[in-house]
Computed example of a mutant assay.
Amino acid sequence: MSEPLPPEKNAGSPDAGLDQAVASRRQLLMGGAVAASAIVSIRPALANTAASVLNCTIPVPDQSRGGNYIAPNGQVVPAGTQGAFPGAGQGFTGEQVKQALRGGRLPGTGYDQNQAYLNYIRRLQSGTSGFTCYASLQMPR
């Protein structure tokens, strides 16, 4: 003759469903605690990322084409090209570019020069100095 199963292992026991419900609630609570701690640790990292994005720089034009001018459409053209603007001489911060893209102006530029520089920035491609900074500005937060 076999021995009866203890109440927690006996599927027909009225306490069997209660024990399983308590166990699954515990698992949910533990999972929630893990998720909450992950959020708390990620939030400061995102804040640091946002701050670094606003402080990154975008040179206009990049160093490899430093002596060239920027045409109104944003293309890099030879120095002295009529209607084009000399390079900025210094990089613009992510914050400055972000404000200019929202209707402001890059520091030290007139309207047409600002538009040419912004067109240059919009045309940046992977591998070009400043591209990562500009791409970071485009990411939703």
Results as ranks from 00 to 15, higher is better:
2 S>Y: 00
3 E>G: 00
3 E>T: 01
4 P>E: 11
4 P>K: 01
5 L>R: 11
7 P>G: 02
7 P>E: 14
8 E>F: 04
9 K>G: 07
9 K>Y: 04
11 A>W: 01
12 G>C: 04
13 S>Q: 05
15 D>K: 14
15 D>T: 02
15 D>I: 14
18 L>W: 07
19 D>E: 09
23 A>C: 09
24 S>F: 04
26 R>A: 12
26 R>P: 03
28 L>H: 12
29 L>R: 09
29 L>T: 15
30 M>E: 15
31 G>H: 07
32 G>M: 11
32 G>R: 14
32 G>H: 04
33 A>Q: 08
34 V>G: 15
35 A>P: 14
36 A>C: 09
37 S>W: 14
38 A>W: 08
40 V>G: 02
41 S>G: 08
42 I>E: 12
43 R>I: 02
43 R>S: 09
45 A>K: 12
49 T>P: 00
54 L>Q: 08
56 C>H: 11
58 I>E: 00
59 P>G: 06
59 P>N: 09
60 V>T: 03
60 V>K: 07
61 P>S: 03
62 D>L: 06
63 Q>K: 10
67 G>N: 10
69 Y>Q: 03
70 I>Q: 04
70 I>E: 05
73 N>Y: 07
76 V>T: 12
79 A>N: 13
81 T>P: 12
82 Q>E: 10
83 G>N: 13
84 A>W: 04
86 P>Y: 04
86 P>Q: 03
88 A>V: 06
88 A>Y: 09
90 Q>S: 15
90 Q>A: 15
91 G>N: 13
92 F>Q: 05
93 T>Y: 08
96 Q>T: 06
97 V>N: 11
98 K>R: 08
98 K>C: 01
100 A>Q: 01
101 L>N: 11
102 R>A: 06
104 G>P: 10
107 P>E: 10
108 G>C: 05
109 T>R: 01
115 Q>P: 06
115 Q>C: 06
116 A>E: 03
120 Y>A: 04
120 Y>C: 01
121 I>Y: 11
122 R>W: 00
124 L>M: 04
124 L>K: 10
125 Q>T: 08
126 S>Q: 11
127 G>R: 06
127 G>D: 08
131 F>M: 05
132 T>D: 04
133 C>F: 09
134 Y>E: 02
134 Y>R: 00
134 Y>G: 03
135 A>G: 10
135 A>R: 15
137 L>S: 13
138 Q>H: 01
139 M>R: 14
140 P>F: 06
140 P>I: 13
140 P>N: 12
141 R>L: 01
